[in-house]
C-alpha cells in the first residue's frame, strides 16, 4: 500500500499500529496479571488461594485500608488547599499569572523522586521543621515526621496537588464573570456568591481533579517507599516486595488486581458523578 493511500483522511488504518501495540503490550499483560492472581498451588488450576491468603492476614487488610484512606485524605486535602490556589491563579493579573503558572507546573514536571527528597530534608531529624521548632524552644526532642502516615500524606499532597489545581483552573476560567456580578448586584455577598455560584459551577473540574489525585495517590510507589520507610506499607510497596523481592508473583498479582479494582471502581463512581455535575454546563 502506498503512503498516500495510508494517509487518506477517512481511513482508521492509521490508528492500527498503536491499537495493536497496546493490545499486545498493555491489554494482554493486564489479562495475564489478572489470570496469574487466580493461579493455584504450584502454578496449576484456578483458585482463590491468593485472595483468601490476603484477606486472612490482618496486616494485609490494614495495608488495603491504609491505602484507601490515604487516597481519600490526599484527595480531600488537595481539594481544600488546591481550590484557593486555582482561585488565586484565575484572579491574578498578567505578570503574576506567569509566575504562578511556573510555580504550579514546575513541581508537576520535576521528578517525584526529587520532590520526595525535598520532604526528607524538611521532615528529617535534622531537617527544617525540627531545627526550627527546637530553636524556637517549642519542642525539646526532635519529633518524628518521617515514617509516619501524616508525613506520607503531606508529601503525597504536594506531589499530586497540581493535578487538582489544573482542572479547577480550567473549570473556573469557563465561568462567565457576569454570573458573579449578577449575583452580587442581586445583593448576594461574596461568600454567598462563592458557595452558590462559583463552587457548583466548578464541580466538573473538582471531580476530574479528584479522580486523578485519588488514582495517582493509591498508585504512588516512590513517595510512600521513601517517606514511609520500611515500616509503613501501602499496596504498591506490597506489590513490589512480593513481586520482586520475595518473588511471589501470584500473590503480588492478586494484590495488583485488588489495587486495580480500587482504582477502577473509584474512577467509575467519579465519572458518573462528573457526568451528573456537568448537565447544566454546556
Amino acid at each position: 500500500m502506498k503512503i498516500s493511500q495510508l494517509l487518506q483522511p477517512k481511513s482508521g488504518q492509521l490508528a492500527l499500529p498503536l491499537a495493536i501495540f497496546l493490545q499486545l503490550f498493555y491489554v494482554i499483560p493486564l489479562l495475564v496479571l489478572i489470570a496469574t492472581s487466580f493461579q493455584g498451588e504450584g502454578g496449576a488450576g484456578l483458585s482463590l488461594k491468593n485472595y483468601t491468603e490476603f484477606f486472612n492476614n490482618s496486616v494485609n487488610v490494614k495495608v488495603l485500608i491504609d491505602t484507601f484512606l490515604m487516597g481519600i485524605q490526599v484527595t480531600i486535602v488537595s481539594l481544600i488547599v488546591g481550590y484557593p490556589v486555582a482561585y488565586l491563579y484565575i484572579k491574578a493579573p498578567g505578570f503574576w499569572k506567569g509566575i504562578l503558572t511556573f510555580l504550579i507546573t514546575l513541581p508537576l514536571l520535576t521528578s517525584a523522586v526529587v520532590r520526595t527528597f525535598g520532604w526528607v530534608v524538611i521532615m528529617g531529624r535534622q531537617g527544617l521543621i525540627n531545627t526550627a521548632l527546637l530553636q524556637l524552644g517549642m519542642i525539646e526532642e526532635p519529633i518524628r515526621l518521617l515514617f509516619t502516615h501524616n508525613g506520607v500524606l503531606i508529601a503525597l499532597t504536594q506531589v499530586w496537588m497540581p493535578m487538582m489545581v489544573l482542572p479547577i483552573v480550567a473549570s473556573l476560567s469557563q465561568i462567565d464573570p457576569r454570573l458573579a456580578a449578577a449575583s452580587q448586584s442581586l445583593g448576594g455577598g461574596v461568600w454567598r456568591t462563592f458557595w452558590q455560584i462559583t463552587f457548583p459551577l466548578t464541580l466538573p473540574g473538582m471531580i476530574s481533579g479528584a479522580l486523578l489525585v485519588f488514582a495517582l495517590t493509591v498508585s504512588s510507589f516512590v513517595t510512600p517507599s521513601i517517606i514511609g520507610g520500611g515500616q509503613l506499607i501501602y499496596l504498591p510497596t506490597l506489590i513490589y516486595q512480593q513481586g520482586i523481592i520475595l518473588l511471589n508473583q501470584p500473590f503480588a498479582a492478586a494484590v495488583s488486581t485488588l489495587l486495580l479494582i480500587m482504582v477502577v471502581v473509584m474512577v467509575l463512581i467519579l465519572t458518573a458523578l462528573g457526568r451528573r455535575s456537568r448537565r447544566y454546563i454546556h
Binding site: P29, L30, S219, L235, G243, A253, S256
Partner: peptide
C-alpha cells in the same frame, strides 16, 4: 495507563 497503578502494569508486563 495514566490512571492505572504503574506497579501493577509493570508486574503484568514482566509476567507477560
Amino acid at each position: 495507563p495514566l490512571a492505572l497503578p504503574g506497579v501493577a502494569l509493570g508486574l503484568g508486563m514482566m509476567s507477560f
